[in-house]
Nucleic acid binder design. Structure first.
Length: 1143
RNA sequence: CGGCCCGUAGCGCAGCGGUCAGAGCAUCCGUCUGAUAUGCGGAGGGUCGGAGGUUCAAUUCCUCCCGGGCCGACCA
């Protein structure tokens, strides 16, 4: 590429902005377009602008001016800050930003306090690993104060990074006035919530058999169990718990009422045998009593199971002595297998207590012996049976799985390690029937990989079942997006809700505020506030500033029974804390200033979290609000799904199957990422693959969003700014109210209103995924029709020269500018919640730089109101029809192989309604211009163009005809042209005895062979391909123009640089060049001030040779030196189409 | 094993009783210069996971099956 002298001086038109992204030097003008668009850089400028002008703070202000705004209540679910934010957080953050921004622009006050979840096992585990302490024993040895201090110090370690990412995404949220679940004020409110439940009698103590991680010394939630190591079953190929080898032990329990006979039972957990208290049989199942031929032993078991033992060669031949139902065995006493809890054999009154056969319907005959060993402390079913049978609850194990002194022989041993000794002892005592090894899936600890132990743990429950029905009712008041989560997943969960285990045997959490007498456990106090505790304990008022275990646990006071009141050791399930967030974030009800605020703001208008919160935050919020206030906790909720990597797998740092979020943001900008996320089905709780295809690991999908959602708006702005700059046009306040007279202008404003109405509806119904598509449709209308068709209106002379027709032309131009301006402002404003940065860029340039804005930011502006008076549905339909017609004709040109460059004489359009005819006539200039045809003909009679085929209109006929439908449909398909044409013309017809009108038949038009006809739906067009010599010549001229333009590009010219064109050609090309009108056409379109026909001088460097329709053409060009001034001298003044010949 | 969701074009997805099943990306073809080639226009591409059923009519509703996802249950 080379440059010409004089280029700079002669340059007109848009100048690249040397400092693309700097503030406008002088206000009141539209900033000229920049050469390049660096979106991330622009976004950072906007961030700085928001910061500098305090925009965010102002948007978050409680009141504006005199009157306080009505609240729109948003609750933010607290994340853990123990890791960095990932796409799931960015998605949730985007949803949580779009909705509040919308309502803020609608005049509501939206408080958006960020929350941090500080308590819970994740942080405890992290700290355990960092400190190198594992399990309760080690933590307690280290000391709770030390441990909790470490948790406190560690839990907020990533908050700064979070803040950076959240802000960079454009999310406005209050980090200063945030809440933390470990704040004393927050925790005190949690106590208050608990006390409310206590007073309502919704809290009780119970036992629950739970999986315990012995190494961690803590029960695990089901969620944690599910996180444990998984593997596929080699046979079924199903994912399940990791498989492990365990002993498979069958033992005999000697019946006390039948010497020499025993009951056989099977277990894979010998360590539970010391705690055996009963044997369970299914009352309906048939059992046998057999004698072993070899040994003479008499045993009871289920016959199918016996056969199985025998098949495996584990048991020899038997002789059947009797058959009986399980129910017949119930109540029979047996001797304790091991001596440790033999004292439970009988109650004080002498009645049999433990060590007897009980009935249980959960007993199956799939495995074991059909007789099930019961250790109520170690199995959920066992516990239930124990409860029903009134058995004692014995548990010789600590939470670390270590036997205590009650099982003296194995005291100090870990349960699984005791297996061996227990088996050995039983074998010695002749109580082992069979010993084997079993490989089975078994849950393991997600942290330590050790097998979990199930055991009964003392726990504190909230009685959810009692209020369950009311909770189900309250759920009906909630709008779930998508709906099915509310009725399905959440609704079903609610209907089956079980009592909520609120307590955890951990350290770093809100302590349960229950103090209990160490002598009389029934003496308890539930403390509902710090003040109350201080009073009970005789502490100075206000002396307690922290409520964690290290501070609270030492607080005691004398009990009525003469003992000491001590706090029970448990802390809350951290879900209880997040569920208390609506109250606790405002220190309810202790903060008098906010008391009514909290009450007035329940339920929240809006929350949004992931599908995984169904049983988490959604549930706990709902339960607590229902229990405390008999209200739902939220009115509207958007549930988002899981974001997967492009390959459909989970995002994995190790696999690197997804792009780094910050890299994506810094490549394409946060707006594009927001628009991408919000447009996907992931905002309807469905899983989403982050990528445009399985191979997209770089975030190409987001780049596409830049192309389709950002650039069109940018280009439209640039168009306006370019001509405004060249023309000296400036927007005025009146343009914002402009009611243009021209159809094109009225049309685009109508479309803009339609788009605004559409997005308002989507915002209001929380159907966020529909917003961007509606906007994209408008972008297409704006760029590919409105601006494209209106282009020449902006080129017109800047007043001045021929004053004749100029008053009208000036007015038209002003309306063109004003309309485009108004459209851009409206669209940018309506999209501000979704693309907050770019809409701000546009708004700043259009409104703030020009001094037109009353607000300093688009986000302080009011959301556009729909102005119904600007809508013209008929006009929108007319243009839609015109565009469709043009598209069909363009496809036809393509099919016929006639380039748009070659003018054709006539386009004939078959019209069937007056509306369509009027529309086409009305926009005739656009049709001619787009298609490069000289005339538009309309015909009502398309008999020459198409053959008609007919199909029955099932929709209208189906209901009426029912079973006769098939016959009628066949008859309709067989109708001839004449009948169809008469029907189409409004006639009536009788078929199979049924009267038909045009309504009942769908006409399908098929182009007749031999002509250039295309038909699509109700649009039929024909092109006249008969080209006159004059048209052919014009076509050739356009081919020449095309070659010259290519040459210009090849020569590296600016679009506005003038040239001198040298051209020669053979045959028809020569004739074209010899035609003065054609030369003028060529000159005008190629900005040639002169066309020199004849051999291209050898000195010309920029030259090209080609052939057009077989005739050679030689071209050369050189830069023309312009005389100064004559700014608009090239203006053609035409206004109908693009094809005008320059004057 | 249960609950909920999803299987539609090469890919990621709309549609969800009725007329030729749609847009986007990708592919292919055409087209550059008075805003945007990061553009514009066009074309090809589908047994709507499978099998039954209901219905005049099923991609759409029902049942079963297969495949995928999430959540949950069970494993004495």
């Amino acid at each position: 590429m080379h440059r010409y002298p004089g280029e700079i001086a002669g340059v007109r038109g848009p100048m690249p902005d040397p400092r693309p992204n700097e503030p406008a030097p002088s206000p009141r003008g539209l900033r000229p377009p920049s050469a390049q668009l660096d979106l991330p850089a622009l976004e950072k400028e906007i961030l700085a602008l928001w910061e500098e002008r305090g925009i965010e703070a102002r948007a978050l202000q409680t009141s504006q001016g005199a009157g306080s705004r009505e609240s729109f209540v948003f609750y933010d679910g607290p994340p853990f800050a123990t890791g960095l934010p990932h796409y799931g957080h960015l998605l949730a953050g985007t949803i949580k930003d779009v909705v509040p921004r919308f309502w803020t622009m609608r005049g509501r006050y939206v408080e958006r306090r960020f929350g941090w979840d500080c308590h819970g096992l994740p942080i405890e585990n992290l700290i355990e690993n960092e400190l190198g302490v594992h399990g309760r024993a080690e933590i307690e040895e280290l000391g709770v104060p030390t441990f909790n201090a470490a948790c406190r110090a560690g839990v907020l370690r990533y908050t700064a990074e979070w803040e950076v990412v959240v802000k960079r995404m454009g999310r406005w949220v209050d980090f200063v006035n945030d809440y933390k679940t470990m704040d004393a004020s927050f925790m005190e409110s949690v106590w208050w919530v608990f006390r409310q439940l206590w007073d309502k009698g919704l809290i009780y103590e119970g036992y629950r058999v739970q999986p315990v991680s012995p190494a961690l010394g803590t029960p695990l939630s089901n969620f944690e169990v599910a996180q444990g190591p998984q593997e596929k079953d080699p046979v079924t190929k199903k994912e399940g718990h990791r498989r492990r080898q365990d002993p498979s032990l069958t033992v005999r329990f000697a019946l006390e009422d039948e010497p020499g006979a025993s009951l056989w039972a099977w277990t894979t957990t010998p360590w539970t045998l010391p705690s055996n208290l009963a044997l369970a049989v299914h009352p309906e199942v048939e059992y046998v009593k057999v004698r072993l031929v070899d040994t003479g032993e008499v045993a009871y078991l289920e016959p199918g199971r016996l056969a199985e033992y025998q098949a495996r060669g584990r048991v020899g031949a038997t002789e059947e002595l009797a058959r009986l139902r399980g129910a017949d065995l119930v109540g029979r006493p047996y001797a304790p297998l091991l001596p440790y809890f033999a004292e439970y054999r009988e109650r004080d009154d002498g009645r049999r207590w433990a060590f007897k056969v009980v009935a249980a319907t959960y007993v199956t005959t799939d495995s074991g012996t059909g007789i099930v060993h019961q250790a109520p402390a170690f199995g959920e079913d066992d516990y239930a049976v124990g409860l029903a049978e009134g058995l004692p609850l014995v548990n010789p194990l600590s939470l670390n799985g270590i036997f205590d002194e009650s099982v003296a022989d194995f005291a100090g041993l870990f349960a699984k390690d005791a297996d061996k000794g227990i088996v050995e002892r039983l074998r010695r005592e002749g109580k082992v029937v069979d010993q084997d090894v079993i490989v089975h899936p078994y849950p393991h600890c997600y942290r330590t990989d050790q097998p979990l132990l199930y055991m009964a743990i003392s726990t504190w429950f909230m009685n959810v079942e009692r209020i369950r029905e009311r909770l189900v009712e309250l759920n009906r008041e909630i709008r779930w997006v998508p709906e099915h989560v509310g009725v399905g997943r959440f609704g079903n969960w609610l209907e089956n809700a079980r009592d909520w285990n609120l307590s955890r045997n951990r350290y770093w959490g809100t302590p349960l505020p229950i103090w209990r007498c160490d002598r009389d456990p029934s003496e308890m106090v539930c403390v509902g506030s710090v003040a109350e505790l201080e009073e009970l304990a005789g502490l100075e008022r206000g002396s307690l500033s922290d409520l964690h275990r290290e501070t609270i646990d030492p607080i005691t006071w004398p009990s009525k029974a003469g003992g000491t009141m001590r706090r029970i050791p448990e802390v809350f399930d951290c879900w209880f804390e997040s569920g208390s967030m609506p109250y606790a974030q405002n220190h309810y009800p202790f903060d008098a200033a906010k008391k009514s605020y909290v009450e007035d703001n329940l339920p929240a208008d809006f929350i949004a979290e992931g599908l995984d919160q169904t049983r988490g935050w959604f549930y706990t919020l709902h339960v607590l609000a229902g229990a405390l206030f008999d209200r739902p906790a939220f009115r509207n909720v958007i549930v988002n799904g899981l974001i997967l990597a492009a390959d459909g797998k989970k995002m994995s740092k190790r696999l690197k199957n997804y792009p780094d979020p910050s890299h994506v943001i810094e490549s394409y900008g946060a707006d594009a990422l927001r628009a991408y996320l919000i447009s996907s089905q992931v905002v309807r709780a469905e899983p989403m693959r982050f990528g445009k295809s399985a191979e997209d690991t770089t975030g190409e999908c987001v780049r596409d969003m830049v192309r389709v959602a950002i650039l069109p708006l940018w280009n439209a702005y640039n168009f306006l700014a370019t001509y405004a700059a060249a023309d000296g046009w400036q927007p005025s306040a009146a343009d914002l109210e402009l009611r243009p007279s021209g159809d094109l202008d009225r049309w685009i404003l109508s479309r803009v209103q339609g788009m605004v109405a559409e997005v308002i509806e989507e915002y209001e119904s929380y159907a966020l995924w529909n917003i961007v598509p509606a906007y994209l449709r408008l972008c297409d209308d704006l760029n590919n029709w409105y601006i494209r068709r209106g282009r020449r209106r902006y080129w017109r002379a800047r007043g001045g020269d021929g004053a004749a027709a100029d008053a009208a032309a000036e007015r038209d131009k002003a309306e063109a500018y004003g309309t485009l301006f108004r459209a851009l402002v409206t669209v940018a404003t309506a999209m501000a919640p979704v693309i907050p940065f770019f809409s701000e860029v546009i708004y700043q340039r259009l409104m703030v730089d020009t001094g037109l804005a009353s607000a300093e930011s688009v986000h302080l502006a009011a959301f556009p109101e729909v102005d119904a008076s600007l809508r013209d549905h008929a006009l929108e339909e007319a243009v839609a029809h015109v565009r469709r017609t043009v598209a069909v004709a363009q496809a036809l040109r393509e099919k016929e192989g006639v380039a748009v460059r070659r003018p054709l004489p006539t386009l004939t359009v078959a019209v069937h309604t007056p509306d369509v005819a009027a529309a086409l006539r009305h926009f005739e200039a656009d049709v001619l211009g787009e298609l490069n045809v000289k005339a538009l003909a309309l015909t009502h009679d398309d008999a020459d163009l198409v053959t008609l085929k007919a199909k029955a209109n099932f929709k209208s006929l189906g209901k009426r005809l029912g079973g006769k439908m098939k016959a009628v449909a066949a008859a309709i398909a067989a109708l001839d042209q004449k009948a169809l044409r008469s029907l189409g013309a409004g006639g009536r017809l009788e078929v199979e005895g049924e009267a038909l009108t045009a309504e009942d038949v769908i006409l399908v038009r098929e182009p007749l062979a031999g002509q250039a006809v295309a038909s699509d739906g109700d649009v039929t067009v024909m092109l006249d391909l008969a080209v006159t010599p004059a048209l052919a010549r014009e076509g050739l001229a356009r081919e020449v123009i095309n070659r010259v333009q290519n040459l210009r590009k090849q020569a590296g010219l600016e679009v506005s640089q003038r040239i001198i064109l040298f051209a020669s050609g053979a045959g028809e090309v020569a004739a074209t060049l010899g035609d003065g009108a054609m030369r003028e056409l060529i000159a005008g379109e190629t900005l040639a001030i002169e066309v020199v026909v004849g051999e291209v001088p050898a000195a010309i460097g920029d030259r090209a040779s080609d052939a057009i329709d077989g005739d050679a053409v030689e071209l050369g060009l050189t830069l023309a030196f312009e005389d100064e001034g004559g700014d608009e001298s090239d203006d053609d003044g035409e206004d109908d189409d693009d094809e005008g010949v320059s004057a």
